[in-house]
Amino acid sequence: MSPAQSLKWLESGEMPSKFNVEIGGSEPYIVGGHTASGYWIDKNRQTTLKNLFAAGDVAGGCPQKYVTGSFAEAEIAAESIAKEINKISITDKVVDFEEFEQYFKNQSDFSVDELEIAMQTAMDEYAGGLTQNYKFSENQLNLAKQNLKRIEILSEKLHANDMYDLLKIYELRERLTVAKVLIEHLKARKETRWAGFYQNLDYPQRDEKYNLFVNSKMINNEVKIISRKIEQEM
């Protein structure tokens, strides 16, 4: 048993032989090792971007993979890469590191932690978090979107003193990007499926029309939703 749980039993004296163990849900995560979230890939584990492959938690469409499933996907991706590698030539490209430098020059009235909690609170209250019993409506999702937009603008101005600060700023910005896409996906599935994971108060029933994949692409900083049939890749 986990150390924390064993300690709790000992501390409280409420041993599991006499007392029921209370259970409950965590906050929601996006994780392709358990659900189907992630990159849209082909059978070779290549993404829609050329020469980019995906395996493990970031690879979509393949839930319940856990540790061994991640290994399996890694093998398939490695075999695809090994087959392709001699056909690809290297393209020398150097990025402009000004994007990083800017955060050392910025001035901000806010800390990363403050903006992180603001993002988490907006997602919790308006995009079906723990305190809402995971339920959401379209009106709420629009509020989440508005809140996130404001936080995103503020996050561009965050200030870093050192590399750890820079890391924390990027981690926040990564989460904001994921949250932005998540909200559009939550809006696009106008039904309720996987009650618990996904409960849309405007559409409380499962709708067979939504036996499809909700996919998306970011184009000019806007999330564009793409529907794909379930059968076409089988």
């Binding site: 986990s2 749980q5 709790k8 163990v21 209370e22 259970i23 409950g24 849900g25 965590s26 906050e27 929601p28 995560y29 996006i30 994780v31 358990h34 659900t35 189907a36 979230s37 992630g38 990159y39 849209w40 993404t47 829609t48 971007l49 980019l52 979509g60 469409g61 839930p63 079906g128 995971y134 994921v178 896409v181 998540l182 996906h185 939550l186 696009a188 599935r189 996987w194 618990g196 994971f197 996904y198 994949f213 909700v214 996919n215 998306s216 692409k217 970011m218 184009i219 793409i226 794909r228």
Partner: peptide, 18 residues
């Protein structure tokens, strides 16, 4: 600009409380 799928299928873990 990569295509992403099924972000709406969130994962919520069933755990021992606390």
């Amino acid at each position: 600009g990569a295509e992403m799928t099924t972000f709406e299928m969130r994962f919520i873990a069933l755990r021992c409380k606390d």
